[in-house]
Design a protein around this nucleic acid. Sequence first.
DNA 1: TTGTAGGCGTTATCAG
DNA 2: CTGATAACGCCTACAA
Lengths: 347, 347
Amino acid sequence: MARERRPTLDTVAREVGVSRATVSNAYNRPDQLSASLRERIITTAAALGYAGPDPVARSLATRSGGAVAFMLGSRLSAAFSDPALSIVLDSLSDTLDAERSLLLMPGVDGGPRRESVTRAHADVAVAYSLPDDSAALAEVRKRGLPLVVIDQPVVSGSAMVDVADRAGAALAASHVVALGHREVGVLAFALHPDDRSGPASEARIGSSRFRITRERMAGYLSVLDAPPVWETPGSLREGGREGAHWLLRQVPRPTALLCMSDELALGALRAAHDLGLRVPDDLSVVGFDDTPAAHWADPPLTTIHQDLAAKGRIAAELAISLLDGARPGPARTLPTTLVERASTAAR
Amino acid sequence: MARERRPTLDTVAREVGVSRATVSNAYNRPDQLSASLRERIITTAAALGYAGPDPVARSLATRSGGAVAFMLGSRLSAAFSDPALSIVLDSLSDTLDAERSLLLMPGVDGGPRRESVTRAHADVAVAYSLPDDSAALAEVRKRGLPLVVIDQPVVSGSAMVDVADRAGAALAASHVVALGHREVGVLAFALHPDDRSGPASEARIGSSRFRITRERMAGYLSVLDAPPVWETPGSLREGGREGAHWLLRQVPRPTALLCMSDELALGALRAAHDLGLRVPDDLSVVGFDDTPAAHWADPPLTTIHQDLAAKGRIAAELAISLLDGARPGPARTLPTTLVERASTAAR
DNA sequence: TTGTAGGCGTTATCAG
DNA sequence: CTGATAACGCCTACAA
């Protein structure tokens, strides 16, 4: 079924009896021609079924106009279930120029497939918490795409925004220790992009390929001595629940749980409920991120606050400035603070 | 800072001493030239810093290769907080050809801005639950982009997938009526794209611009007689909670609540808890969608099941087939079924 | 196996 | 205000 050839600038130009350039101007520089002519052009274009300049051809000619590629470390389902990411992505997309769209590149094995970034119509890439050695990152570099990384080690020549993860985690650990807790368990994100969930060995902890996990762990460990650690891929409530069940079976049983995200902490709350433990009387729980859910939790969650919306906004601003030819400056690191609510208490 | 001109196919060709076509073949048709020559080409390309064929130029030449545009009716934050959408989007992105990426187009006022679809590098569009008269839809038609719509009235010439929303809603209503409930309240999605939340007048209900809201409401109303209705934008738990509070203040107080999504129902559960009402003893609650959260809810939610993953998968398959030149067939309508769990009981 | 020539649909530059 | 003409970077018959 031969799709009939669509009309082009040329078709319209010929029909109206003017040059291509004039038709182009009718769309892109209305002030460059008389209103009446423009009117005539637009009208016959519509009559011809011409939809306006082809976006791809325009991009080729202008060498720009693609989207910003947002590279994820996980599938979309995992991504969507992470409220922290939602907030970042939302504020990022809100900050972007109106004409720039968002190319979402889900990960399949710790990152988008190399080939997808090869063919992506993007003129800047944003990496969100990818493993250090992601192939996608290598391809971005090869293509020479400007890059901004979020929560990730600096790739040379890229702009960067992250938060004081290590300090925040240390804050969380110090908080429970100050409250008198001695047996403390840790609910951690994935240490490696292999979808494993279970108790984490020291070896795995030591070799983690995710910066964020590494940093938060380092923060915890700067205060704690070899706590039991459960690792779970993604940032899923159910994963947190499962891990908390395991941690609470350890002897001696932890009286406090440090969680790398609020979602994980919510799962821990649920586990405590399952086991008939009262929070904070029998168990203290600390989250990370301070997402809206931390507020509404029952009890409201003590957590480490970070400004997720700012993270997205800054990432977008950095992307825009790279596009404008600016050179990446030093990393922008956002602060973290402890927010005490009702899920922690002295033991 | 003049970005130096990047090498092109031509640069490489000249350097190696072959023609452009040959270099092109080296990338796209390895079998068209000797391995050694190809090797030589790739090597010097790397040396020159040539990253491979430019995706935009390639697309222009092949008239394809853009992404699939996914048009949302809401901002990303709202989209992300809707688990039903996450599931659909995830299975859609999973089903897509490996080489096709996903262009996410958030809505700002009931849909993506017209201009964004004008410039989008996409060769097929998917509309998810947009209002009937969205400007984005008009632009898609104008551009002649193949379109598949999800949960939305057929736009002429587009492929369509939806679920038996009306029948499902009728199922929910019949269920509580069969259980003896006479006072039934309804927690509804937005009726119009104006971010309003509050009691819904009959006029608003009668003129809803969202097909999904219309259909589910029609299903409820086919069984119920003028129930109190609270309308809330998005599918947010908090919105459901607020609405349920209002509904439960009505006299006579409803003994059952019908909710247009599980998230809304979860909010209703929360409201019941706030008010000291036991579910299902004092109040029955029915959701819609059967997302994973319905399982885990306390009590587990009676809800209307629909196969969200299938919806995404089918949408992707339809998009692909449109791209292959197929003409849109009749709408694919997925069934809905009642899943009885513990949130409903006889009164 | 390799090269030639002609598009793909726009935009940009620079005269007129 | 309008119109040639030359890019933009690549693909694809078709010819050699």
